[in-house]
């Protein structure tokens, strides 16, 4: 990753134009041409420097369900339980964390009532308690990282 990659990542976190040739517009602002920008973006995606490029949907505003859940998973079962959790397509993110509650995952569903069955299935299949920690209020969501 070079300085130009960093500028591209920083610029594209600010937003992306809703116009017919958006990459050409962004490229012009960065002083490069459309094909170069696209080539770099494809590489950044392929290398997983960018996990996504596109619209970030708000699951709740779309009428969906969303929660954060946590589990205390014994170390010797960690990989197997991670596979079991990740196998649910509704699990959007899953992070290992350094705590007794060592697995934290986000469940996003099309409708709010679909969250609970996912958590219940994970609890039943793993034999472990699942702590449901839905968001009660959101104070900030900046989602921006300086590259």
């Amino acid at each position: 990753m070079d300085d130009l990659d960093r500028r591209i990542i920083n610029t594209l976190q600010e937003g992306f134009p809703l116009t017919a040739r958006p990459f050409a517009a962004v490229a012009a602002g960065l002083g490069l041409d459309e094909a170069d920008l696209l080539a770099r973006l494809r590489r950044l995606r392929a290398d997983n420097v960018l996990t996504r490029f596109g619209p970030l949907f708000n699951a709740e505003a779309l009428g969906g369900g969303l929660t954060l859940a946590a589990m205390a998973v014994p170390q010797e079962r960690f990989a197997a339980v991670a596979d079991l959790v990740n196998a649910h397509p509704e699990v959007a993110h899953n992070y290992a964390r350094e705590h007794r509650l060592n697995m934290w995952f986000v469940v996003a569903t099309e409708r709010p009532e679909q969250v609970r069955p996912v958590l219940e299935a994970i609890a039943a299949d793993s034999g472990l308690p699942v702590y449901d920690m839905p968001k009660l209020e959101e104070f900030s969501l900046s989602l921006r990282f300086e590259a």
Partner: peptide, 27 residues
């Protein structure tokens, strides 16, 4: 484009752009 603008306006789309892997950026 009109529908995407509407979804962005009413918050169904938070934003359109890049989501970096913050680990890959050194965080």
């Amino acid at each position: 484009l009109e529908r995407l603008r509407r979804m962005q306006g009413d918050g169904r789309i938070r934003r359109i752009g890049a989501v970096p892997n913050h680990y890959a950026l050194g965080y």
